[in-house]
Amino acid sequence: MIVQHFPVFAQGLRDRRRSLLWWSLGVAVYIAVIAAMWPSIRGAAGLNDIMSQLPKSILDLMGASDFDISTGAGYVSGELFGFMIPIFILILTIGAGAAAVGGAEERGTLDLLLSHPISRRRVLLQSAALVAVEAAIFGTVVVATLAIATPLADLQIAFVHSVGAAFGIVMLGIAVGWTALAVGAATGSRSLALAVTGSVAAITYLLGSLSGLVDFLHNAKWISPFFYANDGSPLVHGYTWWHALVLAAFGVVALGVGAELFDRRNLSN
């Protein structure tokens, strides 16, 4: 059924299943290791005191301003969701997005694909679905691993909060992955898609973490997709659900612009 109606999606999933599997396994192991360290970290009570004595500006710079390691949820949130998990998912979805159209054109397989009765828009939409599904699978692995680790390491993370936090991350992955897909489709270059999207992600991340530190960047956090993914420690306090709408809108706009440019241009062979 899927193959028949969504051939590009189906083939993409087949191509990527191996890397998806390893990536999921990697993130699960990483989460497990971090979780396993919690019982000993918690014992070292002095650590939180040290953290609280650090100037706020230093914490901001480290992206750790709301890093509260007095609770398991705060610890996991700071250790994982502040930096590593977003990086993991971005590598996954930027890679998937950039490969889907830009990569196919660079490899020379897009010509053959588009000589078949399938429109450029459908190719792009099915690729977008592939990126979204990869992000969702990643998010599911995160939620599942946390669900298993929470009782074992006594993390005391509410299930609904872990779902919310993972959802924010998944939406971040989709928004940025779709941007990579759009750049690849608009330019026909996988490397350009990787470079442009990677730098945009890095710059907005930096601006976001500097916004609490530098006065004139005070409002910069609003343009950072990372802000909408995990502002205010969703793992501890719950996800601000409307933030997902901002990320969704970002992704949809990027995709729309990409589709328009892709539809108009000459393909290289």
Binding site: G108, L112, S115, P117
Partner: peptide
């Protein structure tokens, strides 16, 4: 494209 078959000059599979 429904009714046509095509072999690209620089075939990549």
């Amino acid at each position: 494209r429904e009714r046509t078959g095509y072999l690209p000059g620089d075939l990549s599979l």
